[in-house]
Design a protein around this nucleic acid. Sequence first.
DNA 1: CCGGTTATTGAATACGCATTCAGCCTGTGG
DNA 2: CCACAGGCTGAATGCGTATTCAATAACCGG
Lengths: 363, 363
Amino acid sequence: MARQRVTSHDVAKLAGVSQPTVSRVFAPNSRVSARLHDRVKDAASRLGYRPNTLARSLTTGRSGVIGIVLAGLSNPFYADALEKLSAALQAQGYRTLVFFSANHAAEVDGVVEDLIDHQVDGIVLASVSISNTLTERLKTSDLPFVLFNRGQIDASIPSITAQNTLGGRIAAHALAACGHRRIAHFSGWQQSLNGQERQAGFLQGLADLGLQPHSLTDCAYRPQQAAEAARHVFGPTAAERAPDAVFVGNDNMAFAVLDVLRYELGIDVPGDVSVIGFDDVPAAASPAYALTTVRQPTNRMVAATVSTLCAMIDGTQPLHTHIEIESTLIQRGSARLPKGWTVPLFAPLAPDLPSQERAKIDA
Amino acid sequence: MARQRVTSHDVAKLAGVSQPTVSRVFAPNSRVSARLHDRVKDAASRLGYRPNTLARSLTTGRSGVIGIVLAGLSNPFYADALEKLSAALQAQGYRTLVFFSANHAAEVDGVVEDLIDHQVDGIVLASVSISNTLTERLKTSDLPFVLFNRGQIDASIPSITAQNTLGGRIAAHALAACGHRRIAHFSGWQQSLNGQERQAGFLQGLADLGLQPHSLTDCAYRPQQAAEAARHVFGPTAAERAPDAVFVGNDNMAFAVLDVLRYELGIDVPGDVSVIGFDDVPAAASPAYALTTVRQPTNRMVAATVSTLCAMIDGTQPLHTHIEIESTLIQRGSARLPKGWTVPLFAPLAPDLPSQERAKIDA
DNA sequence: CCGGTTATTGAATACGCATTCAGCCTGTGG
DNA sequence: CCACAGGCTGAATGCGTATTCAATAACCGG
């Protein structure tokens, strides 16, 4: 391998200077006389020299790369988020090392260890399981990291999410405003705080209006499970007792539900049944789905994630450990909302459930 | 930064051995007595030692990371491909540094330089512009790289694609078999070989049957442009002269076309018009689209990419420089194919157009 | 024209690990 | 009991760059 043969020494020799001088020419905040600067630059370009990032990282202790770990890209929300995260980090001068990891705590732990071995300057954990031991390790290793779209009970862990609880509450009010009274919830993974909060908000919203949920089904963010739930709850055997509306834990599952409702069961949406999702993925805007949904503002979540992470890397303690970005309802065609209906102003929610309550849910 | 303080020296001191012994314990093919091995392992785990990948890479010259550069993830085909590529590379012991780069040659060049600076062991270029200078640089730098889903005239550059030409030809035959005679093509980017080949195959297929295309529109793989083309070609002003079928350069654009046809123009698909796409993205299987399309087998393309790249890294010259993975037609509901219709056996195509022809197209 | 700053520059060293090489120990056959 | 082969181990060194630190050169006002 004759690759990358030319080093700062070679350039130094050709330019008739010392190696540190070459190093300084390529470092941002170093003063070198204009004469030597030019000579070095000239020699460097003649030799095709480029600094070896690895060697630089070894001495500086900063690698300039951020690790991103996510469960997968089958949910377009994460494809979008990854692209935007990567772009935002690139704009800050960081490169991104991307790992995919199944939602098992053990595997995530291994991946994070691997990331640490690579001396990443920071980590973004996007919606994956995170074990307590890992949390501890991360906290004590003082390696900057932030949870993206993944809440955490421990308030000292920086995380960026949408207003999940509020979003669930909005969905409940919206479906009730359609005139529905038998409202089901195909929830996100109930082992994740996101899923818990959306469901809790949904129940809260129903309770605001003195309603009970028709049913709650944990679909674990898996479209297949959501489709199955739809067949079960709306299928012929359910008939009389079927709900007339459903709030689905995310858009990706909602698409599967719509497919089953419309094309397997012949149910008219929104004529017979209203459906509301969560995320506002690009496909939700397609007239083929026209999904009414609660938007997670990806851009703002990404911006908050990057700025939080950068602040941590720079040693600045982030002002807020947990940031919730505003959730809003996007009205489209899958829920028969009255013309001109708007989300009511809610009395502010208690910022947190009692901690024992939380601990119970978490366990 | 107290992070990653513990080095092999620390472990060596605690275990009462030399630093090289520690290094050997963590190297795969080194002989160390069982006694010292255990003592070192014990000391390492007590200190929480993990080898510094950067330092290791610096001495060995191999970083164990592969760079992947792609244009974006808005086309689910690439989201899927990225996830699978990353998984396959991870299985081979590689990590993935992911870059997004606009389809401008200059930006791609910069990104690749950046990748080289990071001492990546190989590069996967996924469907992005690649300048001639970059090609030369890559070839002379003897850094292993392969083009994924991106053909190249220069046969000495390893690339993995689907059978684009054949796929286009199949699409033409299929639409003709539906009884259509006024068949349009909303093509992929005609500056890319993929787009050129699909179109060339399409024209070839029509020519097989003595047909002429209704029209050819370069939509550059952008759904918005495809939607615009659909409005233009099928819109009210076109009326009489509108086509009765269209082959779209990829699924992502085909979805946009279907949306316009069905929901803007009220055209029945496949009743009035048949549509065939290319890729077989997951959403194509959704009944909301039920898109008949030419499948690019992502799994096989990924496998071929990874094995080619690994062979190059190991110094083995890959057997084939250009690999074309089989394309097949997936029949669904967007084209009214006769029951039981199957793709005819074609006389084998000339493997390549005459080189002048190619050069002309490329220019 | 000189003492004292300040701006540049080069020599030396460190970063953390892998590898070459020489020395050691053990074991074996003669 | 000796010579020798072979397996382990440690001292030394290198990977390519950044960062002290001391030395030199340039520069300023007095």
